[in-house]
């Protein structure tokens, strides 16, 4: 699985590309693989403020909905308008055309908590091990 070097990562499996005060945000290859076929995306609008560690949107697979958490605080300056019509782009190209929003950061210190590609790769390995041992989801459904 690929985790590009130039990006920063969160424990909730978002990635951030930082260029000056602008942060481009999406979800990682690991996240899209875990979700499976993505069929719906809910994103904020340009001008909205997002707050670090709060949900700013959601992605839905056929099976379930997952919140997307803001890796940094700031104001949304651009939204990937192609995603509502073709959410599967996130499965196909999580780090490229599957980007979600661009944000003007309000506090560069927010970046300090984020993981490097190497740290994130290690973190994902841990998650996978835990998943193999017990199953990371417990089936609340009965069938």
């Amino acid at each position: 699985m690929e985790f590009p070097e130039g990006l920063k990562y969160t424990k909730e499996h978002e990635w951030v590309l930082v260029e000056d005060r602008t942060a481009t945000i999406g979800i990682t290859e690991y996240a899209q693989q875990e979700l499976g076929d993505i069929v719906y995306v809910e994103l904020p609008e340009v001008g909205e403020k997002i707050v670090k560690d709060d949900p700013f949107g959601a992605v839905e697979s056929v099976k379930a909905v997952s919140d997307i958490y803001a890796p940094v605080s700031g104001t949304v300056i651009e939204v990937n308008d192609t995603l509502p019509d073709s959410p599967e782009t996130i499965n196909d190209d999580a780090y490229g055309d599957g980007w979600m929003i661009r944000v003007e950061m309000s506090d560069a210190d927010d970046l300090k908590d984020l993981m490097s590609a190497e740290e994130y790769a290690e973190y994902v390995d841990q998650q996978k091990d835990e998943g193999d041992e017990g199953g990371e989801e417990s089936g609340e459904e009965e069938e």
Binding site: G36, D37, V39, S61, V62, G135, S138, G139, E141, E143
Partner: peptide, 21 residues
């Protein structure tokens, strides 16, 4: 794989939509 009523169950093999179709 997920746990489901005590069983290890595959949620999907190649993808829910592909399998469904």
């Amino acid at each position: 794989m997920v746990e489901f009523a005590g069983w290890e169950m595959p949620v999907q093999y190649r993808g829910v939509i592909e399998e469904h179709l």
